[in-house]
Amino acid sequence: MNLAANRNYARALGLGFGGALLFALPLLMTMEMWRLGFAMEQGRLLGLVLASLPMLLGLSYFAGFEPTFRLKDEILDMLAALGIGLLLSAVVLSLFGALRLEHAPLETTGKIALCAIPGAMGALLAGKQFGDSDLARTRTKARTAYGGELFTVAVGALFLAFNIAPTEEVSQIARQMGPIRCLLLLMVSLLLSHVMVYELGFPGQDVRRGSGGFAGTFVFFTAPAYAISFAISAYTLWSFGRLDGLAVTEINATVLVLAFPAAIGAATARLVI
């Protein structure tokens, strides 16, 4: 048994808890999230939890606790991150009085599972953010593959969509916008996510400079990134039951509203992860 390796891993776990807390707290303190734990359809809850597994596995590949690309280690990292997310949600929700003994098992499980997903994302990201810089460089290189880029976009979009989709405000904003504002929002979303990645001096931006003209980067990166953000927003809203019973135009407006922060999250992820 290697003591030093264990000690290093314990430190990574500690950082993981810190990251999970940072990422999950906004949701742990959102009461719509507690309601969704029991109000959303069980099948959709199951789908969301299952869908998060490959996503976390991919995130572990780019930002795990350990400097490896071996599948066994990625799976171990993913499971550890899930454990951190679930434990943290259970402890914090109990502390907040949102979990009670007289609640049905599904209610308790649903609340914990929903908040654990962003928590696990935070745990994996913290492992990377505080990790040593040599590793960070290797990973940055791996991630610059086109598929890796789009995956990063999906993670960033999912994180922000997850944070905002539970709130009532998404539907409220969609109702008060009207078609012209919807179009403007679409353009603003596209423009901002493009400018953030390719025009502003954000850290990480230098890697991407000169990888093609405006048309090239727009067609190959910004537009697909927005499409992914839109799809993930739609999936999140549908999972949370926010699209049920809406007319097609309302669905479109609601998804468009959520796709705005999702696209910003996607752009940020491309710069930060």
Binding site: E66, A81, G83
Partner: peptide, 12 residues
């Protein structure tokens, strides 16, 4: 693989 990693993954 450190033992702790197996434990953490097992709990997860």
């Amino acid at each position: 693989t450190p033992l702790l990693e197996w434990i953490a993954a097992g709990v997860g």
